[in-house]
């Protein structure tokens, strides 16, 4: 019998880590402020009390050292979870991530296994400015050798975390601060949902149809899924049926789910909080563009993302450059009026 309760995403992540630590003594976690504080964003809340400081380890502010140590410990058969507090901090330790964690398996011809989960906080919307508000998962998805997980709600967050810990490859797990359900930051309530008490996995590379619709496909992930669902509810009142595809993972990417939905609706909007240029939105658009022999579009593809500017501090500036419910709904309305050129 399953016993589901409503959890926040932070609670769901912490529960997942705790259950895997109980199941497998090789799992341990380390990072800045993850022990006594429980993680700045609550992802390891309550775990120190249960597992002690040998397995829930506060580290010095030395990201290269402890992320590199995670790689080294994983190569020996341990299953470390390392928290990089903000993804924006990757600059001080990128070498250990992209040159070592991501590549050692490949360069060893598959002999070296690195079951590391590197989890990190992403996203803006609370005026933390350019060095604490980025998403950047597109950057890590660009580098071969890292699985990229970006949950949008507590149910997925738990199942994807358990899957990540059990994976024998490096997994980067990105949680958006604005859906963690923190008591000190506004969040989208749709992200807190029913979560079974028991351990379960959500497989990688399987997108979720968060809402079905016939007219427009919105491809999104993380907090943007919650915004897209709110936009879809508004559009429904106007008779526009919106299908929301939650990618859940970027690597591996569920190409088929995207293609299937766009075949059905004939309209694609990619809504993203990462930078617009050279990233996720372009990648998804290209997948469809490459299949125009199979897909008939009724309107040109639209992309929403952070235009090529750093995240500004001031509230009106920040809210302007991050796609919002209204801009998503407006883009869909525009697509309903859109046309594609016919061959001459």
């Amino acid at each position: 019998m399953t016993t589901a309760r409503k959890l926040t995403m932070a609670q769901a992540i912490s529960e997942a880590i705790g259950q895997e630590m109980e199941r497998d003594p090789k799992v341990f976690a380390m990072g800045e402020d993850i022990a006594r504080y429980g993680g700045i964003f609550g992802a390891t809340g309550g775990l120190l009390e249960r597992f002690g400081k040998e397995r829930i380890m506060d580290t010095p502010i030395s990201e290269s050292a402890f992320i590199g140590a995670a790689t080294g410990a994983a190569a020996e058969g341990m299953r470390p979870i390392a928290e990089l507090m903000f993804v924006d901090f990757f600059g001080v330790c990128m070498d250990q991530i992209y040159n070592h964690l991501a590549k050692n398996t490949y360069m060893s011809g598959g002999k070296v296994r690195l079951p590391v989960v590197l989890m990190t906080a992403i996203g803006g919307g609370y005026n933390d400015a350019a060095q604490h508000s980025q998403c950047l998962y597109g950057l890590f998805a660009h580098v071969p050798g890292l699985k990229i997980v970006v949950p949008s709600n507590a149910y997925d967050a738990k199942g994807l975390m358990i899957q990540a810990i059990r994976d024998d490859n490096p997994v980067m797990y990105f949680f958006h601060k604005g859906i963690m359900g923190l008591p000190w930051m506004a969040y989208y309530e749709g992200s807190s949902n029913e979560v079974p008490q028991e351990a379960y996995t959500v497989p990688f590379g399987q997108a979720r149809i968060a809402r079905e619709g016939k007219d427009v496909t919105i491809v999104a992930l993380s907090q943007m899924v919650q915004k897209a669902l709110l936009a879809a509810a508004e559009l429904e009142k106007e008779g526009i049926g919106t299908e929301v595809v939650d990618l859940r993972t970027l690597v591996p990417l569920d190409v088929e789910a995207v293609v299937r939905s766009v075949k059905k609706t004939g309209r694609l909007l990619v809504a993203d909080e990462d930078y617009l240029n050279f990233g996720l939105t372009g990648e998804i658009a290209a997948l469809i563009a490459e299949r125009l022999d199979q897909i008939s579009l009724k309107s040109p593809i639209r992309r929403l993302g952070v235009p090529g500017v750093p995240i500004p501090y001031s509230r009106p500036l920040e809210q302007f450059i991050i796609p919002q419910v209204k801009s998503i709904a407006d883009a869909c309305r525009g697509m309903m009026r859109g046309k594609v050129a016919q061959p001459a």
Binding site: A65, A69, A70, T71, G72, A73, A74, A75, E76, M78
Partner: peptide, 8 residues
């Protein structure tokens, strides 16, 4: 760093 990890 990875040597620290192996030692750990």
């Amino acid at each position: 760093p990875p040597a620290c990890g192996a030692a750990l």
